[in-house]
Amino acid sequence: MKALRVEQLTLTLPNGVKLCDQLSFTIEPGRVLALMGPSGSGKSSILGWLTGTLAKEIHADGKLWLGETSLLNVPTEKRRLGLMLQQDYLFPHMSVDQNLKFGLQSGDKATRERKIADSLENAGLTGLRYANPATLSGGQRSRVSLLRSLLSEPHALLLDEPFARLDSQRRQQIREFTWDACKKLPVLLVTHDKADVPAHADVLELEDNHA
């Protein structure tokens, strides 16, 4: 695994307001960087820039590296940066199994089946393999969503307020599951809740731009 590196990122809104100015950071594999700040401070825009889905109005300047490879001119689907959003976006027209298979890279059928069985078992979801996502609880959905991301074998993982929608009981459980599951990847966590940030994480505070 390689490190995810951002150099001198500046994001400017059409009205001239800078969402971030000369931001640089590096996330080594196995490390978590928590990006914190109030809403409107540009956290989501930074994620958008990382994945290459930033709105066209926002002007971006900066460099993005994965190891020694620049990702800037790579289309989103080739960057292999896994993304988890506040909502889990399990595809409603597919079962849990199909959702996971959609994430999983293509290959030998038996291997793929085994990978899915293994990951479901690790997540304690074996019995729900063929369930309709609509019948799952929030925590279960969240885990399936993370598994789907991981099965696509991303080079880094970007998490956008992944726990915000969960009830407080489940939240701790899912946090642990998540940090455990992405031990080997560079992980960028965007949150406004300090409790989400694991002990081993580095923290980067963004300023409030409303001022």
């Binding site: 994945t51 290459g52 889905t53 989103t76 689907e77 976006y89």
Partner: peptide, 23 residues
């Protein structure tokens, strides 16, 4: 929720056309 579906599909490594056809 086209935007979100596209984001998820793209970051899972599918091209935009495939995101449309499959998601």
């Amino acid at each position: 929720n086209v935007d979100a579906l596209l984001k998820i599909g793209l970051t899972l490594g599918y091209s935009p056309a495939r995101c449309w056809s499959r998601l």
